[in-house]
Computed example of a mutant assay.
Amino acid sequence: MEIVLTEQITFLGIFAVGLVAGSVDAIAGGGGLLTLPALLATGIPPINAIATAKLQSTAGTCSAAICYFRNGTFDLKPLLLALPCTLIGSISGVICLNYINPQFIHGLLPLLFIVVGGYFLLSPQVGDLDRRQRITPNMFAVLIGTSIGFYDGFLGPGTGTFLMAGFISLLGYNLRRATAATKVLNLTSNVAALALFICAGQVLWSYGLVMAAGQIIGGNIGARLAIGRGTGLIRPLVVSICLVMILKVWGVEMFHLLT
């Protein structure tokens, strides 16, 4: 009886984490800051936690993308080439995990988040109006879709935030439109990585589906909030996510140095 009760509390906890993470992720990215530690806290092995996190994040991203699409927040046509490029990049990233140590990229993350966070905080381009397009959608697909897709499959933290910065700075998207388009490419890279994890038998379905239920609800809530409140909500949340990412990475590195 006590074991059953403990399991129920665990499932309730990861459902709640999925709900909150789905809301945050739909607006600014960074939901993985909550979901992966929560899954690891249940005691499951790290590789299973990563694979299961990919299942629930795919569900939340899908929920948010559908909400944005129904609202007419973005046009799918400019993203048609970016979808297969992101897919190929993500698959390549997962495969490379078997041959390359991701630590060399991990060490660069704080600098990347400082740049992205500073851009969202200070740049006048980040707003409710579209700006001048700097490159073509096809060039964006090849350069950004492939590289960010690779990064998502290989490492992952902050993928949505990096994509948003790319859409705004290179394609001139306004903040709402960039957030919505980000969900589509993020969903593509998630599905590609998830398929490989499923084939390897590394997904723990009971944990993943419970957290996915929370993600679906949270993703819908977050997307609706972003659509309704726009820059006033998205911009400060993105900056906050970047700050948390910086503190998290540097905090872990300091912990390892001290121990």
Rank of each mutant, 00 (worst) to 15 (best):
T182Y: 03
P84K: 08
A192W: 00
K183S: 12
I14V: 14
L97F: 06
I168G: 04
P236L: 02
S92V: 11
S169Q: 15
F167I: 11
P84Y: 05
I95L: 15
F140A: 05
V238K: 06
M139C: 08
T161H: 01
T182G: 06
E2K: 14
L194P: 05
V252M: 14
E2W: 11
D128E: 15
L122G: 04
A165H: 05
I95M: 13
G172D: 07
T136E: 12
T6N: 06
T52C: 09
A82C: 06
V238E: 01
A213E: 09
L108Y: 11
L175T: 13
E253R: 10
L112Q: 06
V244Q: 01
L129N: 09
Y68Q: 10
G118C: 14
L40K: 05
A21Q: 14
G107W: 08
L112S: 08
S147N: 01
I9G: 01
L81T: 12
S57H: 00
G93K: 02
T52V: 09
F74H: 08
S240E: 07
L19E: 08
F255T: 12
T42K: 07
G158V: 05
G31C: 04
A212K: 01
L187D: 04
C199N: 09
L122M: 11
M211L: 02
D25P: 14
A165E: 05
Q56P: 01
A28Y: 07
G31L: 05
L233R: 08
G230Q: 11
L237S: 02
G208T: 08
V116A: 13
S92Y: 04
L171C: 02
T6K: 14
V249P: 03
F154G: 07
A64G: 05
V191T: 13
L34G: 06
S92K: 04
V238H: 01
K77D: 07
V17E: 09
G145V: 03
C67L: 00
L243F: 12
Q103P: 00
W205C: 00
Q133V: 02
A200T: 01
T231Q: 12
I3D: 15
L175F: 04
G228C: 07
L40V: 05
R229I: 12
D128W: 01
G228H: 13
Q8H: 09
T188C: 14
Q56G: 00
A165P: 09
A21C: 09
T58E: 02
A65E: 06
S240Y: 06
L257F: 15
